[in-house]
Design a protein around this nucleic acid. Structure first.
Length: 433
RNA sequence: GCCCCCAUCGUCUAGCGGCCUAGGACACCGGCCUUUCACGCCGGCAGCACGGGUUCGAAUCCCGUUGGGGGUGCCA
């Protein structure tokens, strides 16, 4: 039985592009789905692209996504002899000729070059529209076309899965491959482009295309994988959020949609939120740690306290970078007051009365969530306020904001002393106004 | 200009000739729940670009129009 062999072939031009990541993913999905192999091929035929740090970045990003490869990576910069041999062979067989020092492939004037694309169906190019293209530069180095055709043949690649922006190179590499004596052609699958709101190809200049930026914002890898899989492909049963193993099982190149797909950061965030919520509390806390560690108040963190309060924000967090601002008041000596929230809530007549009542009763009660709940409710009752309104001044005093994790749980975690101190401070601020 | 590709709700998609008065998800808008926000639940808005065919029957097949995109380097 012939098994599939695919390759992901990025040019190391910086951080991994979101579109490249999707290409890598689809290659990986199909390789794993078919029980075949996936090789990583670094397309560094251009001297500037051989810098190690650029390549490291690709490795790191792919590792983060948990896209794994079979065998060692192939570096095109190390295979120049192969390309030279091919060029010499084309020259010898009169498939190519020297032009101002460069070598060009002789494209026939007549006939067509076509292939059956797994995503797009039949694609046909008339040879007369294809120019004689350079296969070896005048400096002696092989071009992309040469390296591409030689390596796909030499590495026994059975399926070429790449972006639609590569469609026009396909007839060229097919001609090159045939000129090398190959009678077969790999399967081609040209994936739809990922586009921005203006329906233009995601570009490094205008758009947020670096995979690492998403990681740094607090997108977790499984969510990224899941979202990327949904760009150009959809499960037949309409269940979008599912483990990558199931996606591997369901994935088929033939099911890939040929039309371009807009990158929707909101949907990515929504999916990420689902993944965050699905974590157990320890996992969530652990995922949060790198973001917490960057805060100015990270030195004053008590790990036990963090473990206790992190679950309070778990279902309120879509991306991990949203975590720290929701938790800072637990670890600061005094909360940072949101001025507009303060003005909205504290300028009413009742606010001072509620704080006064709270500071009195909170010194007496059992320090339990239920008791805190009851205390605030009865304070509200005496002023004929619903709990939602009655808790607002206390929330501002204790957390500095009008929104946040559940108040009574937060107060409980904070402790009586800190809570009373904050209420006291708020009363003083009110008095000063 | 030339070449290639694409066309289902705002967005991502399901649909591969009858199951479609087109399903799901995100977003948006209501409501419920409720200590804020969120989560959750319920409901709503909204789409087969247009015109011709083919067929008993078309979102699904064919042709054209329109619109959009990609490519046109001795970059990859």
């Amino acid at each position: 039985m012939s098994t599939s062999r695919l390759r992901f072939a990025p040019a190391p031009t910086g951080s991994l592009h979101i579109g490249s990541a999707r290409t890598a993913l689809f290659n990986w999905l199909y390789a794993r789905h078919t029980g075949g192999e996936l090789v990583l091929r670094i397309e560094d035929t251009n001297a500037e692209l051989t810098r190690p740090e650029l390549i490291d970045n690709i490795y790191r990003s792919l590792e983060w996504l948990q896209i794994d490869f079979d065998g060692a990576p192939v570096r095109q910069s190390e295979r120049t002899d192969l390309y030279n041999d091919a060029v010499e062979q084309w020259l010898a067989d009169d498939f190519a000729y020297v032009d101002e020092g460069a070598v060009r492939f002789r494209v026939p004037d007549r006939g067509t070059t076509a292939w059956e694309d797994l995503v797009r169906g039949t694609v046909v190019f008339e040879n007369q529209h294809i120019e004689d293209f350079v296969v070896r530069r005048s400096d002696g180095t092989a071009t992309f076309f040469t390296a591409n055709a030689v390596d796909d043949l030499d590495l026994g690649i059975t399926h070429v899965v790449r972006g639609e922006d590569m469609v026009n190179v396909t007839p060229k590499v097919i001609m090159l491959r045939r000129a090398l004596g190959a009678t077969d052609v790999p399967e081609f699958a040209h994936l739809p482009l990922i586009v921005n709101e203006q329906r233009k190809k995601l570009s490094k200049r205008r758009d947020d295309v670096a995979l690492e930026n998403y990681r740094d914002r607090g997108i977790v890898a499984p969510a990224m994988i899941n979202y990327l899989a949904l760009l150009g492909w959809g499960p037949p049963d309409d269940i979008e959020i599912r483990p990558v193993g199931e996606i591997v099982e369901l994935f088929e190149l033939g099911d890939v949609n040929p039309s371009s797909a807009m990158f929707d950061a909101k949907k990515l965030d929504a999916i990420n939120g689902e993944y965050l919520r699905a974590m157990n509390p320890q996992e969530f806390c652990q995922a949060l740690e790198p973001w917490i560690g960057q805060q100015t108040w990270s030195d004053s963190i008590d790990p036990t306290q963090l473990q206790r309060v992190a679950p309070l924000i778990q279902e309120r967090t879509r991306v991990l970078s949203e975590g720290p601002p929701q938790l800072d008041f637990f670890f600061l000596n005094m909360p940072e007051i949101d001025q507009s929230a303060w003005d909205k809530v504290m300028l009413s007549d009742e606010a001072g009365l509620i704080l006064e009542a709270a500071s009195a009763v909170l010194g007496e009660i059992n320090w339990e969530v239920d008791a805190l709940h009851d205390a605030l409710r009865s304070i509200g009752d005496t002023y004929q306020m619903k709990l939602g309104k009655a808790q607002a001044p206390v929330r501002i005093a204790v957390t500095g904001r009008s929104v946040g994790p559940p108040l009574f749980e937060s107060m409980h975690a904070l402790g009586r002393e800190a809570v009373l101190a904050r209420i006291g401070a708020a009363q003083e601020m009110l008095a000063d106004e």
